[in-house]
Design a binder for these strands. Structure first.
Length: 266
DNA sequence: CGCAGCGCCTGAAGGC
DNA sequence: TGCCTTCAGGCGCTGC
């Protein structure tokens, strides 16, 4: 599932390949989640940015195209004449290539909006700070979490406290910070540790080109390598690399969650 | 306004 | 072998 590091990896590859190109034609799956891809026809791509897990294409004519990859989405650039496979949910014809959104489970989404107008994308409009932004401090994290009584992991996944964190990196950061995923309040010291570990986990994953468990691929179709560096996610039943206990699995607010009951105390 | 609950999707994996 | 069930989960929407 593409989270911030995976989306960042894709955007870094995508930016030099499509910036300045004009969208000559486009098409999409009839679902409302993808149909607006065609609204980008005739626009020039001026910029490619990332916010959280959202890819933002700055377009000419005062428009902006937002692409979210959902669970199984991939962006790929193929030769203009190549065959379109059944899982391509949206495509944009550039002068020399075709940009495609491949998304088996259709959890992804495409929206074309007036630049900066995110009223139809509530999560994006309420998105928290980027973890790698200097403004994301222990203080802002503590302030953002202290008023809510939801589980800390649920708050991380909400995208409002910090942007771009999904199930993998939430489990990793909480394990590293030794905070129980179901904790309903954290101390200032824990907020400090959590901020530092979120930054560490995200930076490390970007360095490794993202985590490929099944679906994630870079723009060029290669896999990431961060799956070899995960210390908690997906390791339930195996030994805790810190205390030697056994990592446990629980379902927290509907999400599979791996943690160490011995060294992640509430 | 916050948030719990639900629906969206389909391939893979496990049970019988 | 093949059918059926369960599971994975980010986000938008609805309603309290």
């Amino acid at each position: 599932m593409p989270e911030l590091p995976e989306v960042e990896t894709i955007v870094r590859e995508l930016r030099p390949r499509v910036s300045g190109k004009t969208i000559l034609s486009a098409g999409a799956h009839p679902s409302a989640k993808f149909a607006s891809a065609a609204a980008a026809i005739s626009a020039q791509i001026l910029s490619v940015q990332r916010r959280g897990k959202y890819i933002l294409f700055g377009l000419s004519q005062g428009r902006e195209m937002i692409v979210h990859l959902g669970m199984t989405g991939r962006l790929q650039l193929n030769p203009a004449e190549s065959e379109v496979d059944q899982y391509i949910r949206a495509w944009w014809q550039l002068d020399d290539a075709r940009l495609e959104l491949h998304d088996v489970r259709r959890f992804g989404r495409v929206a074309v909006v007036p630049t900066g107008n995110y009223t139809t994308l509530p999560t994006l409009s309420a998105l928290g700070p980027e973890p790698l932004d200097p403004h994301f401090s222990a203080g802002t994290l503590w302030t953002a979490t202290r008023t809510s009584r939801r589980a800390i992991k649920t708050q991380l996944l909400s995208q409002r406290v910090v942007a771009g964190i999904g199930n993998i990196y939430a489990d990793e950061a909480l394990w590293r910070a030794q905070i129980h995923p179901a904790a309903r309040r954290i101390t200032k010291a824990q907020a400090e540790a959590l901020r530092n570990e979120l930054v560490e986990v995200v930076e490390t994953a970007i360095d490794h080109g993202g985590t490929t468990l099944r679906d994630y691929r870079t723009l060029g179709g290669t896999i990431g390598h961060n799956q070899h560096h995960l210390q908690c996610y997906g390791r339930a039943g195996q030994e805790c690399l810190r205390c030697g206990g056994t990592l446990k699995r629980m379902v927290l607010d509907g999400r599979g969650t791996t943690f160490c009951a011995s060294c992640q105390k509430r």
